[in-house]
């Protein structure tokens, strides 16, 4: 697979896995209004993943027309954990509302910068998806930032829960800014984006909100050891369970239409 195709799948996997996680809240949110809000974000993300998988499938199909053509569902439902390229951050369990909010907050800021950068890369297909997605992501950024403030500066309990969420999720942040080989290659050919260039902007955006929320800034004082790399297929144990659930029907009844 070409570096750029792999890169598109990496973007798609990010959107799908976070969309999947967020959708686990549907029916279980802290209040109806917010149940609906988070379901909307899940729908946005799953919609983004579909657009990206379709783009990847189109490329893969045009490169080898002799093979049976691949669909978005083949990509989502028939790959195993080590072939998935999403960030480890996104597959973490939902935990409480604080952890879910913080994950959305960290990722949506990253995604906003990333998709902005992709607007003027060479691939018109990816630029079009980015442009459409940015409108959605802006709202995710706003919604999650407001919640970070409410929880950080809300009650003693909510503040404590945000501290726990920071502890749980901060170790998974460095991965976002370390380019994978395919990412670097695709970036050098003008198709993708080197994420290390996004760090400073991300840091200042995120820290502005964290400061308002009376929460400790990123990076945490103590650097956590970091070894996993989801974008290279090296995941936490969570992903296996997500896929087992998500892919169950496709795996149990191979070759069926649904």
């Amino acid at each position: 697979m070409s570096p750029f195709s792999t890169y598109i799948i990496h973007l798609a996997d990010n959107a799908l896995i976070l969309g999947h996680r967020n959708s686990e809240w549907t029916g279980h949110g802290p209040i109806l209004e917010q149940d609906i809000a988070l379901s909307n974000i899940a729908l946005d993300l799953i919609g983004q993943s579909r657009n990206l998988y379709q783009l990847a499938a189109e490329r893969l199909n045009s490169l080898s027309p002799e093979r049976k053509s691949i669909t978005e569902d083949d990509l989502a439902y028939l790959r195993d954990s080590t072939e998935y390229k999403n960030f480890v951050l996104l597959e973490q369990d939902n935990g409480d509302w604080a952890k879910t909010i913080l994950r959305e907050f960290y990722f949506s800021h990253f995604q906003l910068l990333q998709y902005h950068g992709l607007l003027n890369r060479k691939d018109p297909g990816l630029a079009a998806i980015s442009e459409k997605s940015i409108k959605e992501i802006r709202y995710h950024v706003k919604w999650s930032s407001e919640w970070v403030c409410r929880l950080g500066d809300g009650t003693l309990e909510s503040h404590a829960r945000m501290l726990n969420a920071l502890d749980a999720l901060n170790p998974w942040i460095p991965e976002l800014f370390i380019a994978a080989d395919y990412e670097k290659e695709a970036a050098e050919s003008g198709l993708a984006l080197d994420p290390s260039a996004l760090y400073e902007d991300w840091l200042s955006m995120v820290n502005t909100v964290l400061a308002n929320a009376t929460l400790p800034l990123y990076p945490p004082e103590k650097k956590d050891a970091f070894s996993l790399s989801g974008k290279n297929g090296f995941h936490s144990e969570h992903l296996g369970y997500i896929l087992a659930e998500m892919q169950f029907l496709q795996r149990a009844y191979p070759g069926c239409s649904w």
Binding site: I46, S49, A76, W258
Partner: peptide, 17 residues
């Protein structure tokens, strides 16, 4: 979380929502 295709997943979320 177990919907068998992305299209089904999206429509089911929208419906439950």
């Amino acid at each position: 979380t177990r919907a068998p295709s992305l299209r089904r997943k999206a429509t089911l979320i929208a419906k439950v929502q």
